[in-house]
Design a protein around this nucleic acid. Structure first.
Length: 800
RNA sequence: GCGGAUAUGGCGGAAUUGGCAGACGCGCUAGAUUCAGGUUCUAGUCGGGGCAACUCGGUGAAGGUUCAAGUCCUUUUAUCCGCACCA
């Protein structure tokens, strides 16, 4: 048979759809398998080759699990709120709703050409009212439980997009969306108290199967550190200046303090600081530094010594100078530090520059040359002198601080609370009403969804206000509590909101009473396997674990962690080995490949390319190799016609079933496909096979090239879909050979190979090795010192 | 600086986890088929030496452990990714 992909691919796609072949079943007595892939943003550009690789992995695993008898849930939806669509609306005046629907339709049509076994009946769209109703519902639950708060703070603000950005969205001082430089601005910001969940998010990692590097990134992101809060008193006042330190053991070595330039206490003591004009000047200097300059680490330390304001070291009782410097940041700890120049590199550099005392308190280094950050015996440290265990010194000091009421043990996180509002149209409206007498009042649950009002102009207001603020009919409302005149919140949620719980909605996508039926949630959750990109490991993955954990804490879901197992696919690079980008002109369009080679070839090639988790460049010639493979496979229907039994193939077949079965589980798709190729070569060599044997081959092929598999299945006269047939079993006994070839080494060097019975014992193996003419000749006249026999592997004879 | 990875033929990559390095595919070489291009088929393809059987060397580099190292240990170099003055 010929591989006429242009004919067979649409044919089987239509048949699958008509039969609802891949709908997740209702039979809850069956074992379930929930496979989740990160849902796409439906951009106008449509499907990218990266989407194909991202979904192909769990596609193969889902297809295999379905054939193994699992009830499989493998859905796809759309994360459709977000800036690109809104910016498109601003430019073209096409309503985001219209553009989103159009893009989703296009994307869906493109995806369907690949023959992925998604359950399209469960598709969701985060911008539908029936969906964001529940996004708002979860937000209100968080509000109810005190996890939402509002604060006026300096925020990252993108002047081009006119929106407030979270720290995550403004990494490196650049706006995530438009890459323009982010500036600091004072604003009212909605926060989600994710820091309250920091410890739970850390602890939860112990119970899930994520790759070590992903766990490490999350741990790093949460950035938990333990230490102590210590109160220093400003000399001559009752004012306590609290600092956070991880090294309370070095308190005797504190010779100065440093505050962030923005520290509010400065203004309170403006009158006492004789050189406040220098403070103002330094603040202005810091404010106008570019983000690039600010993140240069080895730059000179700058700062200003406060004239007239000192602090008292609470353990030595000595007065020490206070500086302001931008190497201390307001956003971490308390915005002020104790400086121990002898044992901290930054403090050391600063002390050298400003001529402050450096007092050694930990022995082991040469503090006249550099800061010593290692461990050692405590010196110049009062009651700590002589201790040489850091942990002991720290706990001794913390006890002292606590007994004397000057400090306490404490924990800090690098992770910050989640800035949760955007001044944008195309997002979920925040369902809160501002009432002059009641304050912030949640929209009652039975009034959800709070719908986005119709709009024709989508530009943000001049001072960065949400476009919603200009719609009087939306803004003006009655307070749900007192009934008085009130105003609605006009900001919307960030794009991360909708994706923080979408996996729950697939379970019961049209439910209007709840986000999902609890019984169905109990059956389908947790997600068994979640695959996605490395770029979402620290944001989406943490946010969604946070939301899910919250729902668990309030009894809405039955497990604390949403995803049992996580994997990540590598990028497909352009043929030039560079990241694919329009500007480089190295973009491969998956639809072009489908048009000229077919979806089966594209799927097979993408998985054959290399390690699924690693990045690899696209190679046009490699695609041809996979086409050749599938064409030769198609031709097997001719070989299988009327052939007799083929005992020489049966072991190879069992071995291949085992190899493919095992490799798919480990996402080693490349070697699974290689095993199929090897078997194909073997079949060509033998020149015949039975129809039964071909059926097994076709089943193994099905997860990778399902259209061709179905067509061959039909040609073989089988009923139903091979996609829904049973996965082939293998007989462990048939995967081992009766006679095996092993290597014979002399002094560790390969000298020959021998054929031995698989069950031969040590003596038998040695006898065969010694009787091999070549080996015997080499051993002649030598003294055998040692004979090593590893059953089934190797013989090594050590001679002198 | 910290954290995580990676390094194997001309290329993408294999190697049952310490046991015959280079599976499978691409590319290349030669031959066959074809009017020709393409396709298909056969043989070869890590490097040096040899007509050959064979032999010596070989997994970024240098040491080490071991009968045996791509795999384990120590040191080191390069590249990539993430975080980054986190007190």
């Amino acid at each position: 048979m010929e591989h006429d992909f242009k004919k067979i691919e649409p044919k089987w796609q239509a048949k699958w759809e008509e039969a609802g072949a891949f709908r997740a079943g209702d039979d809850r007595s069956k074992k379930k398998f929930y496979a989740l892939v990160e849902f796409p943003y439906p951009s106008g550009a449509g499907m990218h080759i990266g989407h194909v690789k991202a979904y192909a992995g769990l596609e193969v695993i889902s297809r295999k699990r379905r054939m193994q008898g699992y009830n499989v849930l493998f859905p796809l939806g759309f994360d459709a709120f977000g800036l690109p669509t809104e910016n498109y609306a601003i430019k073209t005046h096409v309503h985001p709703r219209v553009a989103t629907d159009r893009n989703i339709e296009k994307f869906t049509m493109q995806m369907k050409k690949l023959g992925f076994s998604f359950d399209w009946s469960r598709t969701i769209d985060t911008t539908e009212e029936g969906y964001y109703k529940w996004t708002q519902w979860i937000f209100l639950k968080m509000f109810e439980h005190g996890l939402v708060f509002r604060d006026k703070t300096l925020v990252n603000y993108c002047p081009k997009c006119k929106v407030v950005l979270s720290n995550e969205d403004s990494q490196g001082g650049r706006c995530e969306v438009c890459k323009s430089e982010v500036v600091q601005r004072s604003k009212d910001v909605w926060y989600l108290r994710i820091t309250e969940y920091a410890d739970k998010l850390l602890a939860g990692l112990d119970s899930v199967d994520y790759p070590a590097n992903i766990k490490a990134q999350q741990i790093n992101w949460i950035g938990r550190s333990t230490g102590a809060f210590v109160d220093f008193t400003l000399t001559g006042t009752d004012e306590k200046l609290t600092i956070y330190t991880t090294r309370p053991d070095t308190l005797f070595g504190v010779t100065f303090m440093v505050m962030a330039p923005e520290h509010p206490i400065l203004d309170k003591y403006r009158d006492r600081i004789a050189n406040f004009d220098a403070v103002d000047e330094y603040r202005a200097f810091c404010a106008k530094k570019t983000e690039f300059e600010r993140t240069q680490i080895n730059k000179d330390k700058t700062g200003v010594r406060l004239d007239g304001l000192t602090a008292r070291n609470p353990v030595t009782g000595k007065d020490i100078p206070i500086f302001i410097s931008d190497y201390v940041m307001m956003g971490y700890g308390t915005g002020a530090i104790m400086a121990v120049p002898a044992h901290d590199e930054r403090d050391y550099a600063f002390a050298k520059k400003f001529g402050v005392d450096i007092i050694e308190v930990v022995k082991g280094g040469d503090i006249s040359a550099a800061a010593y950050t290692g461990d050692g015996e405590m010196v110049n440290s009062g009651f700590l002198n002589g201790l040489d265990n850091k942990a002991d010194s720290i706990s001794r000091m913390i006890s002292y601080l606590e007994e004397n009421g000057i400090g306490k043990a404490g924990v800090q996180y690098k992770m910050k609370d989640w800035a949760f509002n955007r001044q944008r149209y195309w997002g979920e409206p925040i369902p809160i009403v501002h009432c002059p007498s009641c304050g912030m009042v949640p929209v009652p649950y039975d009034e959800l969804p709070l719908r986005l009002p119709e709009l024709t102009k989508f530009e943000p207001g001049e001072d960065g206000e949400s476009p919603l603020a200009s719609i009087e009919s939306f803004v003006r409302c009655k307070c749900p509590k007192c009934g008085g005149d009130a105003r609605r919140e006009t900001d919307t949620m960030p794009q991360w909101a909708g994706s923080s719980w979408y996996f729950l909605r697939y379970i019961d996508p049209r439910n209007d009473e709840r986000f999902a039926d609890p019984e169905l949630v109990r059956y389908w959750m947790p997600v068994d396997w979640y695959n996605g990109g490395m770029e979402h490991v620290t944001r989406h993955l943490i946010y969604s674990r946070f939301w899910y954990r919250f729902l668990y804490d309030i009894g809405e879901v039955p497990f604390p962690e949403p995803y049992l197992k996580r994997s990540a696919q590598g990028l497909i690079l352009g043929p030039d080995g560079e990241k694919m980008s329009k500007s480089r002109g190295n973009v491969i369009d998956p639809l072009d490949i489908v048009a000229s080679y077919g979806a089966d070839v594209l799927r097979t090639y993408i998985l054959f390319l290399g390690d699924y988790g690693a990045s690899a460049p696209w190679a046009d010639n490699g695609v041809k190799g996979c086409r050749r493979f599938l064409e030769r496979v198609a031709a097997l229907t001719d070989i299988a016609k009327g052939s007799g039994s083929t005992p020489e193939l049966s072991k190879d077949l069992h071995k291949t079933v085992k190899k493919v079965t095992d490799d798919i589980e480990e996402m080693k798709f490349n070697t699974a496909i290689a095993a199929l190729m090897t078997l194909l070569n073997r079949i060509s060599e033998v020149g015949k096979m039975t129809a039964d044997e071909l059926r097994i081959f076709v089943k193994l092929l099905c997860p990778f090239a399902p259209h061709l598999a179905e067509e061959m299945w039909e040609r073989l006269g089988c009923d139903g879909f091979v996609s829904l047939s049973d996965w082939p079993e293998f007989d462990e006994k048939m995967t081992v050979d009766d006679e095996i070839e092993i290597a014979v080494q002399i002094n560790g060097k390969l000298k020959g190979t021998i054929l031995i019975p698989a069950d031969a014992d040590r003596d038998a193996v040695l006898a065969i090795a010694n009787s091999d003419p070549k080996i015997a000749a080499l051993l002649d006249g030598k003294t055998v010192v040692k004979e090593i026999v590893v059953p089934g592997k190797i013989v090594n004879i050590v001679v002198r």
